[in-house]
Amino acid sequence: MFIIKCPYCGERDHSEFSYGGEAHINRPKKPTELTDDQWAEYLFMRKNIKGIHYERWNHSHGCRRWFNMARDTSKDKIHSVYKIGEKPPV
């Protein structure tokens, strides 16, 4: 159970947030120009990283804003949180 620092609200309990999967997977701007394989890459393929993982979180029982988190999966520790659109740290 983390304490998560929402970039908009500050530190809040884990139970106020929901997880949204791997971050920095942009929806292709021109899907129709992609092959099946390329589209499948976007749609289905996700990393399973040991170490720093970039992931999406939503303050669903708070401000309802989405943001990103860099989390060390091997230690289950939050490295940092940052806003959507910002460059990932590290």
Binding site: G20, N26, R27, R56, R64, R65, W66, I84, G85
Partner: peptide
């Protein structure tokens, strides 16, 4: 909300 905030801001 997800699409508005993250894909189509």
């Amino acid at each position: 909300e997800d699409f508005l905030q993250t894909e189509w801001p």
